[in-house]
Amino acid sequence: MLNEFWLWLEYLPIAGHIGATWWFPLMESLHVVSITLMLGAILMLDLRVLGLAASGYTVSRMSRELVPWSAAAFVVATLTGTAMFITRASAHVLNPAFQIKMLLILVAGINIAIFHFRIFRTVSHWDISTKAPASARMVAGASLFLWCGAMLAGRWVGHVI
């Protein structure tokens, strides 16, 4: 049944239109702009939490100013990514690179939730410090690792099909 759903997506007129016209490269280039902007913002925040950069600013201020940018970029990346996905949905779901990419994004999302809903609660104790608690530094390191991995897997998607 799920298989029929992927095929149904592929046969949507909009999917055919994106796949056959300049819409596809437009979506792809906007995807590149949004994922790199997102990672640029995430990189700045993670390096601050790790105590490696921007030590003149508090973690909470960096988070307040950067998270809206990475969240907005993530929304654009998801929309443009979905637009590309539906053009070959049934092939993508079977593509191991695509499966790994989705898994990495899911784990990265859980990682973000752990940071913002648990670790960030105690931020007032280490806001100005360059030595955040080990748990915070672990989450920041994992975030960098997971997003770089998602990018590599995403780039690999195009080399499998």
Binding site: V32, I35, T36, G40, L43, C148, L152, W156, H159
Partner: peptide, 20 residues
Amino acid sequence: PILQTLHLLSIAAIMGSIVM
């Protein structure tokens, strides 16, 4: 794909610095 990913990560560094 590895070189292309390094290309993307370098673009992310440009986004986090020049574009910011």
